[in-house]
Design a protein around this nucleic acid. Structure first.
Lengths: 152, 152
DNA sequence: TTACAACAATTGTATATACAAATGTATGTA
DNA sequence: TACATACATTTGTATATACAATTGTTGTAA
């Protein structure tokens, strides 16, 4: 990942700017590789994420707000995202008895089975992406990333 | 940026996976802050990027393929992206005399003036985002990021 | 009990992006 | 010259995402 080569420039890039660009380029790469890894299962990264969250519920249902809290995406998408997972028979949706405003979403047997395969594909993707980075470097990386100021 | 808190989980996340998620969360943050910084100028991050590339040409025009090489985005968008910049009178587009297949794109005076303001906004955004990270950490970060395996 | 605010999810619409096909131009070659 | 091929950009279409407005439900204060 040689930032200067990718941007096809010969003048040095300021450290802060270079860092940001570097992160954007790596994100680009992660996104592409994720899409590729999940392609055989016909799900998007976000759909995979929803399935993973539902799995983490250990049988308990999650409603849309909960899903949304644990995701990056916006609320309006979550409904349609779940719609697509229902079409694939990966999740079920029912109205919450206690509070009819809420929707409860469960992962199905089929969804769980597919999720296992997806997770394996994702793991080998991650392994490949990080194959040149040892655990010590990863620790260091995470430590620096922790320092990012992500609040406004 | 406490990954576990954001994902609202109490079980530890594997190092590799945590790193990927960490990067995705930071990207999310960069994207949001960038959009916010550029909002007063009514340009998207990609439009800003195009202007910056054109500025870097030092008066020489760039054609669409060149722009595309230096960008992350896909070719089909570049035409429409430039369309929008033309509407704002930030760039000009002419057919190349030597090779009528090619399109030459220049930044306008107005585009350059706005670009300076945009760049300042972006700089202070970057400064704010990285305010807790010193130069040594940034160097370390870049060194580890260099090790990412971004080829297929 | 009614009226109103808050909540949870959905829908509409505009904009952005991705992928494939189409258009117009140039080049090589038989 | 005529043809096929490659090049550079554009267009069409499907899908994704963002933002605002809407629907249906619940809680609560007068």
């Amino acid at each position: 990942m040689d930032v200067e080569r990718i941007l096809k420039t010969n003048k040095p890039i300021p450290l802060k700017g270079r860092t940001i660009i570097h992160l954007l380029l790596i994100h680009q790469s992660i996104t592409e590789k994720t899409a590729e890894a999940l392609k055989p299962f016909d799900v998007s990264a976000q759909q995979f994420n929803v399935l993973r969250i539902l799995k983490g519920q250990n049988g308990k249902p999650a409603n849309l707000s909960t899903l949304n809290d644990r995701m990056v995406s916006k609320m309006s998408n979550t409904t349609r995202l779940v719609d697509k997972l229902i079409l694939k028979d990966f999740v079920k949706r029912t109205v919450c008895k206690e509070n009819r405003r809420k929707i409860e979403i469960y992962i199905t047997k089929k969804g769980e089975e597919e999720l296992i395969k997806m997770s394996n594909a994702m793991l080998s993707m991650e392994k490949s992406l990080l194959k040149n980075i040892n655990d010590e470097d990863l620790q260091t990386l995470n430590k620096v990333l922790d320092k990012f100021n992500t609040d406004n």
